[in-house]
Design a protein around this nucleic acid. Sequence first.
DNA 1: ATTTTTATCACCCTATTAGGGTATTGTGGG
DNA 2: CCCACAATACCCTAATAGGGTGATAAAAAT
Lengths: 209, 209
Amino acid sequence: MPTKILIYDDNTDLREGICHLLRLREEYEVVGEFGDAKNVLKEVGFLKPDVILMDIEMPGITGVEAVKKIRTIDRNAQIIMLTVFDDQGHIFEALQSGANGYLLKRNASDRLVQSIEEVLSGGAPMSPSIARLIISEMQLRKPQENYQLSIREKEILKSLATGNSFKLIASDLQISLETVRTHIKKIYEKLQVHSQIEAVSKALNEKLV
Amino acid sequence: MPTKILIYDDNTDLREGICHLLRLREEYEVVGEFGDAKNVLKEVGFLKPDVILMDIEMPGITGVEAVKKIRTIDRNAQIIMLTVFDDQGHIFEALQSGANGYLLKRNASDRLVQSIEEVLSGGAPMSPSIARLIISEMQLRKPQENYQLSIREKEILKSLATGNSFKLIASDLQISLETVRTHIKKIYEKLQVHSQIEAVSKALNEKLV
DNA sequence: ATTTTTATCACCCTATTAGGGTATTGTGGG
DNA sequence: CCCACAATACCCTAATAGGGTGATAAAAAT
């Protein structure tokens, strides 16, 4: 049975262009195409598409919001976002909301079929510039410095970072409160901080834990 | 002038396979191929490649370490990692260290040329399963709950999370220490926590700040 | 074999934070 | 007009944290 595809895009020409393109292939069936996502829940619930192509910029409800809604009722549909802008904010929000791929419209016609195959086989199609954005986002997490914390100190810092009091840490680790305090002082020295919050904040921000 | 390519892979067959493949195209020039990355700095410094294909698993120094070294002397070379395993740890480490793409060897022969074009034009080629891994990593950052913090409370929480003491916050905001305490109490109530660390840890983890 | 690091425990004093209240003001919604 | 709420401020007591100093035994490094 064919792959069921559902399209959301407020640009009628583009929408019909995509329809045409996909109808050339018998393995795909366009089960619906809409200019806005106002009734997305009903439509997805009823049509049960395998793949959804979702424009970001639409009147009324945005593509990102639509994805969030869809994910409340359907975790399996593969969603590919379409957009004209490679705007960082939208990309991350969409992907975090549960989109599976992200194409720029200028690449869409070339890569659409390939991208649909890719999501269906468990991939995550994205336009090159999107991929680069995501990667540079990851590179921002700068290689953290090495503060030379001992195993024990890391253990304690981790526990501290989850919100445990000194007392709790002591009883967790079966050591005296004073020992915990000693370790903490050492940690402060190594991280060059002077309080719990600073230590925890540093630890969480630099992913030392 | 042709694109200069440098190859690191301990598997001689694969290395030569790639060489053959690339030599079919006159726009590429393989300027070197090595079975390990022990002298990577010297080699990169001397050969000045445009693109580096870097195996992850190599005897002596790993591909990831090699990337880190390369990035200390060259921020422009495009580096594509090659690996047999889609192991999450290595992927993130490599990308954070400055790799530009990440291919599984099983996809490499098909996609290599395309991927080289992609990095050169500023993209970030990755095998579909790698892309999916990265995206699911992003999706882990679950949509945070809304604790209905007031503007002032968010402001104070943010300040607290950067390591400021109540006193400092008070003087920063030009309000009394007691007022800060009142706000903090309210924040604890809303976040359902009972200490600074818990509040800060929750705030940082859920990106409320 | 000797030194350094790590992990452990203890005691001191002071500063900061938590937890429990109460109270005043201004603002916006019903 | 009254109510709810955010923001402000104060009080008191108990608990927790910060900073300093010192000590011991085992493990690791030299």
